[in-house]
Simulated assay, not measured.
Amino acid sequence: MAIHKILVVDDSKTELHHLSEILGKRGYSVRTAENGEEAMRRLAEEKPDLILMDVVMPGQNGFQLTRSITRDPRFADVPVIMCTSKNQETDKVWGMRQGARDYIVKPVNAEELVSKIKAFD
Rank of each mutant, 00 (worst) to 15 (best):
M1V: 15
A2G: 08
A2F: 08
A2I: 15
A2D: 11
H4I: 07
L7F: 06
V8Q: 03
V9H: 01
V9R: 02
D11G: 04
S12H: 09
E15W: 14
L16N: 15
H18S: 07
H18L: 15
L19C: 14
E21R: 09
I22A: 06
I22G: 09
L23N: 10
G24P: 12
G24K: 01
R26M: 05
Y28K: 04
S29A: 14
S29L: 11
S29R: 07
V30W: 06
T32P: 15
E34T: 06
N35S: 12
E37F: 12
E37I: 00
E38Y: 10
E38C: 11
A39F: 09
M40D: 03
R41V: 06
R42D: 02
R42L: 03
L43T: 00
L43E: 04
A44F: 13
K47M: 11
K47D: 08
D49W: 15
D49E: 08
L50W: 04
I51V: 05
I51P: 07
I51L: 11
I51A: 04
L52V: 07
L52C: 10
M53C: 02
V55L: 09
V56G: 00
M57T: 00
G59E: 04
G59D: 03
Q60W: 12
Q60I: 10
Q60G: 05
Q60D: 06
N61W: 02
N61I: 12
G62E: 09
Q64A: 10
Q64N: 02
Q64S: 14
Q64C: 11
L65R: 01
S68K: 06
I69H: 01
I69R: 01
T70P: 12
R71Y: 15
D72S: 03
D72P: 14
D72Q: 11
R74F: 00
F75N: 02
A76K: 07
A76S: 08
D77Q: 00
V78I: 08
V78S: 02
P79L: 01
V80I: 13
I81G: 02
I81W: 05
M82P: 02
M82L: 05
S85M: 08
K86M: 03
Q88F: 03
T90Q: 13
D91F: 03
D91L: 13
D91T: 07
W94F: 07
W94S: 08
G95R: 10
Q98M: 10
Q98G: 03
G99I: 12
A100F: 01
Y103F: 08
I104R: 10
I104S: 06
V105I: 15
V105Q: 09
K106P: 13
K106I: 13
P107A: 04
P107V: 01
V108P: 13
V108M: 08
V108T: 05
A110G: 11
A110E: 09
E112I: 14
E112A: 02
E112D: 05
L113N: 11
L113D: 12
L113C: 06
V114F: 15
S115T: 00
K116Y: 03
I117H: 00
I117F: 04
F120L: 03
D121N: 07
